[in-house]
Design a protein around this nucleic acid. Sequence first.
DNA 1: TTGACCTTGTGATGTTATAACATACACAAT
DNA 2: ATTGTGTATGTTATAACATCACAAGGTCAA
Lengths: 161, 161
Amino acid sequence: MPSDTLGFESHDHSSCVVAALETAERQCKESKAQLTPVRRRVLEILLESHAAMGAYDVLARLDAEGLGSKPPVAYRALGFLVDQGFVHRIERLNAFIACTHPGASHDPAFMICRECGLVAEAQAANLALQQAAADSGFLLEQTVIEAEGLCPACQTTGATA
Amino acid sequence: MPSDTLGFESHDHSSCVVAALETAERQCKESKAQLTPVRRRVLEILLESHAAMGAYDVLARLDAEGLGSKPPVAYRALGFLVDQGFVHRIERLNAFIACTHPGASHDPAFMICRECGLVAEAQAANLALQQAAADSGFLLEQTVIEAEGLCPACQTTGATA
DNA sequence: TTGACCTTGTGATGTTATAACATACACAAT
DNA sequence: ATTGTGTATGTTATAACATCACAAGGTCAA
């Protein structure tokens, strides 16, 4: 089966960015959420690459652009975007990444390249985990699935490094 | 199929602790790793409950017992125990928990009760993720699988809280 | 007894995240 | 116009998590 991973393959990134922004705008209009300048700019910054950025890296960008200099500014915008599903938090990295499946149902899994930092998002519900939860009576509300390894490019260039 | 989750069921905790310590001692002997007093004590502290503890909580215990007061003491011991596979790090909580499957092959998944903090460890390899990785050429080295929700006890007591 | 290696002690610092309180702005009800 | 309400932002301070760098002790074998 073909994967729906927006993975490590090259792609038309500018259209990918535009699509994500349009989706965000539409969804905010529908849900009467406000995609304010700071929030929109943070989403744009994260969309620039398919790598995860720390909150303070985002903040540095905002600061350089005169949009805010204190941690809560970045954390609030990121929190909003995560709540809306436009951005995901990568627990493993304490960092954030723009969602590459705008609008899709969300129980995302991530593949993180430890060499170049690129992160691919896949849909990969964990059936075994759901089974284990059902078996033990655990009410499963949210799952974090994050894999670390080497992307195709870094496997060939860096050898084992 | 019966789950091999050491889950939220009640169990003979003291024998569970003893077994884990014995396994750790045996494995250290085999691999010539040193289970020093600090390291052993940290493992014991984590074994006291099936909840995750922050590094600084562990450190506070060490300090109270005269075993060390500076962060690196705790982080070094925890790092050692994680390397040996006796302890797992829970990324979602920035915290640590004793392994409940001593000696077992390790690609653990966790179910975290957001109410009481209890954490159950299950073996739940994510086949869909492995498939997605294979599809996109990603070399999967390590996976983080952490679910958050409500344990059986907290579902009944707290209602929806 | 020297050197290599591992472990621990400690001060300083770096990184990530939130609490708490004040201000501003939009919009509706009076 | 003014007051109330809700949402978003600005700012200070601090909490919480983690590592660096360097000194000192212990063990063991050459």
